[in-house]
Computed example of a mutant assay.
Amino acid sequence: MSITQQHLLDVHRARSLGEPVPPAPGAHDRQVVREWRDERRFRAVLAGRPARHRFRDTLSRWRRRPI
């Protein structure tokens, strides 16, 4: 059974029982990734490491590099 079929089955069951409908799969992906990133930064600070933006730092280094 695919995730879409499972979701449709859960929606049908919830509606027939008068319960709130569950959120669609992937509805909160951005929030989960944002919380995961914040947790990594927090743990880095607790461990005494700088909480860096690695991707942003790399891009700025490439931009400053002489040609």
Rank of each mutant, 00 (worst) to 15 (best):
Q6N: 12
Q6S: 15
Q6H: 14
H7A: 05
H7E: 05
H7Y: 12
H7L: 04
L8Q: 15
L8R: 11
L8T: 11
L9A: 15
L9M: 10
D10L: 11
D10P: 02
D10F: 04
D10H: 13
V11R: 09
H12C: 13
H12A: 15
R13Y: 02
R13Q: 07
A14I: 03
A14R: 04
A14P: 01
R15F: 01
S16Q: 14
L17D: 15
G18N: 00
G18E: 00
G18P: 00
E19H: 14
E19Q: 15
E19N: 13
P20Y: 10
P20I: 13
V21Y: 07
V21S: 11
V21E: 13
V21C: 07
P22W: 05
P22I: 03
P23G: 03
P23Y: 05
P23W: 04
P23C: 07
P23R: 09
A24D: 07
G26M: 04
A27G: 15
A27P: 12
H28A: 05
H28M: 07
H28R: 10
H28W: 08
D29A: 11
D29N: 03
D29H: 05
R30N: 10
Q31G: 06
Q31N: 08
V32R: 09
V32N: 04
V32K: 09
V32I: 13
V33T: 12
V33A: 12
V33H: 09
V33S: 08
R34E: 10
R34K: 11
R34S: 11
R34C: 08
R34V: 08
E35W: 03
E35V: 04
E35M: 11
E35A: 14
W36N: 15
W36S: 14
R37W: 08
R37F: 07
D38L: 13
D38R: 15
D38Q: 14
E39Q: 14
E39K: 13
E39A: 15
R40E: 06
R40N: 10
R40F: 05
R40H: 07
F42S: 14
F42Q: 15
R43C: 03
R43G: 00
R43F: 00
A44S: 04
A44M: 06
A44G: 05
V45T: 11
V45Q: 10
A47W: 00
G48E: 03
G48S: 09
G48T: 04
G48D: 07
G48P: 01
R49I: 09
R49A: 14
R49L: 13
P50K: 04
P50L: 03
P50R: 00
A51T: 01
A51E: 02
R52E: 04
R52Q: 02
H53N: 08
R54I: 08
R54F: 06
R54W: 07
R54V: 12
